Amino acid sequence: MSTPISEKLALVRESERMTKKEFAELVSVPYGTYVYYESGRNVPSTEIVMRIFNNPRLEKYALWFFTDKIAPESGQIAPVLAHFGQDETGYSASGQKTG
């Protein structure tokens, strides 16, 4: 079952660590309109969706948004992977209390 557009928009925005207002400004959509998209009250037009994923900061999510697939070798990722990967150190706490 595919994720609703409203949830996908929220995942993209949250992965970029942006507020709804910041995201709306980035993609040149009025804040109130964007809030309706993310709440599921309205569905963005094709023009708006294309504007979102033609943005250089967001284009890495386009394949996932439209098809639910990823192609990391092509730079196409899912939002949940946006802040993981190279920067991950592999460090894990021992669980022992100190002090």
Rank of each mutant, 00 (worst) to 15 (best):
M1R: 09
P4D: 07
P4R: 03
I5M: 06
S6R: 14
E7C: 05
L9C: 08
L9D: 00
L9G: 02
L9P: 01
A10C: 06
V12T: 01
V12K: 03
R13G: 05
R13E: 00
R13F: 05
E14Q: 12
E16M: 15
E16Q: 14
R17A: 11
R17K: 12
R17V: 07
R17S: 12
M18T: 05
M18S: 05
M18C: 04
K20D: 12
K21A: 12
E22W: 00
F23A: 02
E25D: 10
L26R: 09
V29L: 02
V29K: 01
V29R: 02
Y31N: 15
Y31S: 14
G32D: 11
T33A: 06
T33H: 04
T33L: 08
Y36T: 10
Y36S: 11
E38A: 00
R41Y: 11
R41N: 14
N42A: 13
V43G: 09
P44S: 06
S45M: 05
I48L: 02
I48V: 13
V49D: 00
V49W: 05
V49E: 09
M50A: 13
M50E: 13
M50R: 11
M50K: 11
R51W: 00
I52M: 07
F53M: 09
F53K: 00
N54L: 10
P56R: 07
L58W: 01
L58H: 03
E59T: 12
K60C: 14
Y61K: 06
Y61G: 01
Y61D: 07
A62C: 11
T67P: 06
D68F: 03
P72F: 05
E73W: 06
E73D: 11
S74Q: 14
S74L: 11
G75Q: 08
G75R: 02
I77C: 08
I77N: 04
I77L: 07
A78G: 06
A78V: 04
A78H: 03
L81D: 15
A82T: 05
A82H: 08
H83L: 13
F84Y: 11
G85E: 01
Q86K: 14
Q86I: 15
D87C: 10
E88Y: 07
G90I: 08
G90L: 10
G90S: 03
G90M: 02
G90V: 15
Y91T: 06
S92A: 12
S94W: 00
S94H: 03
Q96S: 15
Q96M: 14
K97M: 11
K97G: 09
T98E: 12
G99M: 10
